[in-house]
Amino acid sequence: MIRHSHEASESWKNLNWKEFRKDLFRLQCRVFKAIREGNKRKALSLQKLILKSKAARFLAIRQISQLNAGKKTAGIDGKKSLTSEERFELEKLLKASSNNWYHQKLRSN
């Protein structure tokens, strides 16, 4: 059995989720606006900004580990759920690996 500390659990619960959603939505609106205007370079840079965004990382982890309907289904690593410490470690891993990601070019019609 994996034990987790009360402090990590409380700090995960006390993150400002509303502010994270607001920040991510604002960035997504800017991407939409840039694409609508035909400014692909700006859209690309904004997508990279979303990828490096702390809000996007935390919301993605929360969606997969807490809100998803399949949250209790084991993944390829065999784990069924993540503790709060594991969620914070996953965020650190995503932050470190965000510099290695390359954008798949936008389709042009």
Results as ranks from 00 to 15, higher is better:
108 S>D: 05
103 H>W: 07
49 L>D: 10
46 L>D: 02
94 L>K: 03
91 E>T: 00
74 A>V: 04
63 Q>S: 10
64 I>E: 12
72 K>L: 14
1 M>E: 09
82 L>K: 09
40 K>T: 14
81 S>I: 07
74 A>C: 02
26 R>S: 15
49 L>R: 12
34 A>H: 02
102 Y>Q: 09
72 K>I: 09
89 E>N: 04
93 L>Y: 13
5 S>M: 06
5 S>Q: 07
92 K>G: 02
20 F>V: 00
52 K>Y: 03
100 N>F: 12
14 N>L: 13
90 L>G: 01
24 L>Q: 13
6 H>K: 15
55 A>E: 08
73 T>A: 07
65 S>C: 14
102 Y>G: 01
25 F>T: 15
47 Q>K: 09
30 R>G: 04
23 D>P: 04
58 F>N: 03
107 R>Y: 00
63 Q>F: 06
84 S>W: 08
37 E>L: 14
83 T>N: 01
23 D>I: 11
59 L>E: 00
103 H>P: 04
91 E>F: 03
94 L>V: 05
104 Q>M: 04
87 R>M: 06
68 N>Y: 11
105 K>T: 00
60 A>P: 00
65 S>G: 08
48 K>P: 00
57 R>H: 08
22 K>C: 05
49 L>G: 07
92 K>D: 09
8 A>Q: 12
43 A>R: 10
84 S>G: 06
96 A>W: 07
15 L>R: 13
41 R>P: 08
85 E>M: 08
23 D>R: 09
3 R>M: 09
93 L>P: 00
83 T>K: 01
23 D>W: 04
64 I>A: 13
38 G>I: 06
102 Y>I: 06
12 W>E: 05
101 W>L: 07
32 F>W: 09
73 T>R: 10
100 N>Y: 13
108 S>Y: 00
95 K>C: 13
25 F>Q: 15
74 A>S: 06
41 R>L: 15
70 G>E: 12
5 S>V: 04
77 D>Q: 04
37 E>C: 10
75 G>E: 01
